[in-house]
C-alpha cells in the first residue's frame, strides 16, 4: 500500500475538513473571538486530525503490506485467507471474512472437480481392464482357429491393445496419484519385455534390433518403463526410412551420477524446427503430417511418465539419419536407502 495512493483517496475528506475548518474560523471571527483562541483551536484541530489519520494509515499499511507480500510468496493464491492474521479494523475484518468465504467455496469447487477427475480416472482404469477381456478372447481365438487373415487380425488387435494402453497411461500421467512402484528394475528385462511385445511389428518391417550393454539396474517402475520403451519402438516403427535397412539400437552407459539408456533408430529423423516441440501434447510436426498417421500423444505421455518417475528424457536427431532418445536414471542414494 502506497501512502500517496491513500492520501489521494482521502483527498475529498481532507477538502471537506478544510472547508469545515474555514467555516468555523469565519464563524468564530464573526463573533469576535480572540485571535489567540482561534489559532490554538486550529492547532488542536489539525493535530488531532493528523494523529487519527496517521494511526489509520499505519495499521492499514501494515495489514495490506503483509497481505500483498504473502500473496506474492504463495504458490496457490487462493489459500491467502489461511495466511492472514485477523486485522484490528473493521474494513480489514470484512475483507478477511470475504476472503475466507470465497476461499472455502473455491476449495469446495476444487474438490468437486478433483473428485470428478478421480472418478473418471477410476472409470477409465476399469474400462481398460474390461476391454482387455474381449481383446484377450479374440487374441486367443485367432491363435486357436487360424485363418488366412490371422496375421492381419492380429495386427489390428495389437493396434487396439496399443490404443487402450495409451488411454490408461494418459489417465495416469495426468493425475498425481501414487500408482507407480519404484523398485530396482533390470534395464535388460524391461527392454526384452518391450521387444517381445512388439516383436511382430518389428519383424513385419524387418527391423533389426541391436541390444547391448544393458546389464544395469535402475530405480523405476518396470511397467511404466516397458510402456515408455514400447512407445519409442512404436515411434521408430512409424518413421522408418525407406532408403536403408531399418535398425534400432538400444544400449546403456554408466556415468558417475546416472545411468543413461540410449534408444537410437536410423529412421527419417526429425526436422530441427520440430525437435523442441515433439514432447508437446498433440504436436504432430512435419513427419506426422506428411504421410504417417500421428496423434501427437505418444511422446507427450512418455515425457510426463518420465517426469513423474523423475527421469530426464532428451532427444537428438538429424533429418534422414537418426533419432536418438536418452533417458537418464539418476543414481540417487536416497532411493537405495
Amino acid at each position: 500500500m502506497k501512502i500517496s495512493d491513500h492520501l489521494r483517496d482521502r483527498l475529498p475528506d481532507y477538502m471537506t475538513m478544510l472547508f469545515t475548518f474555514a467555516a468555523i474560523v469565519l464563524f468564530m471571527d464573526a463573533f469576535h473571538v480572540n485571535t489567540g483562541i482561534i489559532i490554538s483551536t486550529g492547532i488542536l484541530f489539525w493535530l488531532g486530525n493528523a494523529l487519527c489519520e496517521m494511526r489509520e494509515i499505519m495499521r492499514r499499511k501494515s495489514f495490506y503490506d503483509t497481505l500483498t507480500e504473502r500473496l506474492e510468496g504463495l504458490d496457490k493464491k487462493y489459500l491467502i485467507c489461511e495466511m492472514t492474521d485477523e486485522p484490528d479494523f473493521f474494513e480489514g475484518k470484512l475483507l478477511c471474512d470475504i476472503l475466507r468465504e470465497t476461499g472455502a467455496s473455491m476449495c469446495e469447487e476444487n474438490l468437486k472437480y478433483r473428485n470428478a477427475a478421480a472418478e473418471f480416472r477410476e472409470f477409465i482404469e476399469m474400462w481398460v481392464h474390461e476391454i482387455k477381456l474381449p481383446l484377450s478372447s479374440l487374441q486367443l481365438m485367432v491363435h486357436n482357429t487360424p485363418c488366412e487373415n490371422s496375421d492381419k487380425i492380429n495386427e489390428q488387435l495389437r493396434r487396439i491393445d496399443g490404443c487402450t494402453d495409451m488411454v490408461l497411461y494418459y489417465a495416469r500421467s495426468e493425475n498425481a496419484q501414487k500408482d507407480h512402484m519404484i523398485l530396482k528394475t533390470s534395464l535388460k528385462k524391461a527392454v526384452t519385455a518391450a521387444a517381445v511385445k512388439n516383436r511382430e511389428d518389428l519383424l513385419l518391417r524387418d527391423i533389426a534390433l541391436c541390444v547391448r550393454d544393458l546389464g544395469f539396474t535402475v530405480m523405476t517402475d518396470s511397467k511404466w518403463l516397458e510402456f515408455i520403451i514400447g512407445q519409442l519402438m512404436a515411434n521408430s516403427i512409424k518413421f522408418i526410412s525407406q532408403e536403408r535397412s531399418p535398425e534400432i539400437s538400444i544400449w546403456a552407459e554408466e556415468l558417475p551420477d546416472k545411468i543413461v539408456l540410449h534408444f537410437r533408430d536410423n529412421g527419417i529423423g526429425i526436422p530441427d524446427g520440430d525437435l523442441p516441440r515433439i514432447f508437446e501434447k498433440t504436436f504432430t510436426g512435419e513427419n506426422g503430417r506428411s504421410g504417417c498417421r500421428s496423434t501427437g500423444m505418444g511422446l507427450y505421455i512418455v515425457k510426463s511418465l518420465c517426469e513423474r518417475l523423475g527421469h530426464n528424457i532428451q532427444v537428438r536427431s538429424q533429418v534422414n539419419l537418426f533419432t536418438e532418445f536418452e533417458i537418464a536414471f539418476e543414481k540417487n542414494d536416497f532411493y537405495y536407502a
Partner: peptide, 9 residues
C-alpha cells in the same frame, strides 16, 4: 494381472 496397478509386485 490387469494392465493397471502394481499387482505383480
Amino acid at each position: 494381472t490387469a494392465a493397471s496397478g502394481s499387482d505383480e509386485v
